[in-house]
Amino acid sequence: MNRERLMEETRGQMPLKRWDHTIGVMGAAVELAKRFGGDPDKAELAALLHDYCKYWPIEEQRREYAAEELDPDLFNYDPQLLHGPLAAEVVRKRYGITDCEVLDAIRYHTSGRERMTLLDKIVCLADYIEPGRDFPTVPVIREMAEHSLERALVAGFDSTVQFLVEKGKKVFPLTIVARNSLIDEIGGRTGPKD
């Protein structure tokens, strides 16, 4: 499928404000890919599709998620987490996206994962720092992103965890695992997935 049609179909899945966010994530992902030696084309594609299912009704997301036989443990956490893994499966089937690296970057853009790949990091961080984001710690995270994907992502995950704790919500364990893995990577104890 050509890029213009894929953009048009993705835009049709969300309200205008979320489309503006998606465009911002695409730009940030390409910039981060160029800065840190990633593939700008893969970064742009994963960023384009990262929120594909986000605005489907939650019951539809739950139904489709279950039909895809994805990890049922996710149902025990905030429903906002469903759209990443679901989007990866939907775009694989609908559009023939077969690049596992792109699909994983879509799948893990909200939670992160242990030993994130470069593309995982780029898309996840781009989602945090795109120009339309205005949460209190985003300027610091953007500054960190000038020099280190890993440190910026740890700060992003810290912000997410703090927000969830303040709201009295559960924290998805994979986010803590991702954060800890990044800290190990910063300390030189592990590396990203190959």
Rank of each mutant, 00 (worst) to 15 (best):
T98M: 12
A66K: 09
W56F: 10
G37N: 14
Q80L: 14
T98I: 13
E8Q: 04
E68S: 10
E101K: 03
R94S: 05
K54M: 14
G84H: 02
P72L: 09
E60H: 08
D73W: 12
Y95C: 10
M14T: 06
G12I: 05
E59W: 12
Q80A: 13
I58T: 13
C53L: 01
Y77Q: 13
E9K: 09
E89C: 09
P57C: 11
W19G: 00
Y95A: 11
Q80F: 09
Y55G: 07
A46R: 05
W19C: 01
Y65N: 03
I23Q: 04
G38Q: 11
P79D: 13
T98S: 12
A105E: 10
A29P: 08
N76L: 12
A43R: 02
R94F: 12
E89D: 05
C53M: 02
G37E: 15
L103E: 05
D39I: 01
Y95L: 11
F75H: 15
K54F: 14
F75E: 14
L45W: 04
Y95T: 13
L48Y: 00
G24R: 02
C100H: 14
R107V: 03
P15K: 07
H109A: 06
H50Q: 12
E9D: 08
V90H: 03
A46D: 04
D73E: 12
C53F: 01
R62Y: 05
L82W: 14
E64R: 11
G84E: 04
R35I: 11
Y65C: 02
P79K: 03
L49M: 08
D78V: 13
L82D: 01
G37P: 09
A29D: 05
P72E: 09
D78P: 06
L86V: 08
H50W: 05
R92D: 12
A33I: 03
H21D: 02
W19D: 00
A28N: 06
Q13P: 02
H50F: 01
A87R: 01
E44L: 00
K93S: 14
R11P: 02
T22W: 07
E60C: 06
Q13S: 10
G12M: 05
D104A: 10
T10C: 08
V30I: 15
L32S: 08
L82P: 03
H109I: 02
K34W: 10
K17P: 01
I23P: 00
Q13T: 02
Q61K: 06
A87V: 05
I97M: 11
G24N: 07
R92G: 08
T10I: 08
D71H: 01
L48W: 00
E64K: 04
N76P: 15
F75Q: 15
A105R: 04
F75R: 04
L81W: 07
M26Y: 00
E64P: 00
E89Y: 08
P72S: 09
L81A: 10
R107N: 11
L86P: 01
Q61W: 02
D104K: 14
K34A: 05
D71P: 01
R35Q: 14
Q80P: 05
L70K: 06
E60R: 04
T98K: 15
D99Q: 11
T10A: 06
